[in-house]
């Protein structure tokens, strides 16, 4: 009889004990993809392009791989009507003759301007200039440096800006616009003439719509 009792007790004990287990593998939760920085963005006095426009070797033909980028540049210009004039600057590395680089960089700048005009950017907004290898931004002694020097830049030479005088309520942290002035700001057509032209401060561009002058 004792044996029966033990069996019964063991049976009941096994029945009441919980099932214990662990997950077979770690359950991975991946975060949302990080917001991509814009490929083309308007800055104070230039349109910054975080990707290179690709051309056929030694030619001014824009490669098809860059068409999407070119369309994006056109769209950004169109979306920013405060931009009135852009200088498209072609630059070359020091490889090859000076004259050839001058010709090629100018042809590439014109090619970019033509593409943008053909895709809806007003013709009057664009001026194409070739600077050859005269304005390097990196060391021409290295391949990496030469690659950086081969580039196209977009300089905003004319734009409308808004100057605002703003009062900030220290308590509520709210801003109140006291005065607002609109101004057409021009860069010198040739940067070699110096940088004495009026340059809008970051906060003054109409695009940003932020206060420019604070009392």
């Amino acid at each position: 009889m004792r044996r029966w009792l033990i069996v019964a007790a063991a049976g009941l004990a096994g029945c009441s004990s919980p099932v214990v287990f662990q997950g077979k593998s770690t359950l991975v939760v991946t975060g949302p993809p990080a917001a991509q920085p814009p490929r083309v963005e308007v800055q104070d006095h230039k349109i910054e392009i975080h990707e290179k426009i690709q051309f056929d070797d030694n030619r001014a033909t824009i490669r098809s791989a860059s068409r999407e980028l070119m369309d994006e540049i056109g769209a950004v210009i169109t979306r920013n009507p405060q931009i009135k004039r852009i200088r498209i600057e072609g630059h070359a590395s020091a490889e090859g003759s000076r004259r050839h680089n001058q010709t090629l960089s100018a042809a590439r700048a014109r090619s970019v301007a033509k593409y943008l005009r053909d895709h809806g950017v007003a013709a009057g907004e664009l001026v194409a200039v070739g600077y050859g290898s005269d304005r390097p931004i990196a060391d021409n002694a290295t391949a990496d440096g030469r690659e950086k020097n081969r580039r196209v830049e977009f300089v905003i030479v004319e734009q409308d800006v808004v100057h605002q005088k703003v009062e900030v309520d220290a308590g509520a942290g709210k801003e109140k616009v006291l005065e607002e002035n609109h101004e057409r700001v021009k860069e010198p057509d040739d940067p070699a003439a110096g940088t004495s032209g009026k340059r809008p401060a970051r906060s003054t561009t109409a695009m940003h719509g932020k206060p420019a002058e604070r009392p």
Binding site: P18, V20, G23, T26, L27, V29, P33
Partner: peptide
């Protein structure tokens, strides 16, 4: 449901999306 209680342990790993 099950006639038996269960005690479970699971591990979640939270990690940022891989850079593209």
């Amino acid at each position: 449901p099950d006639g038996k209680e269960a005690r479970a342990t699971f591990v979640y790993a939270f990690q940022p999306a891989p850079a593209t």
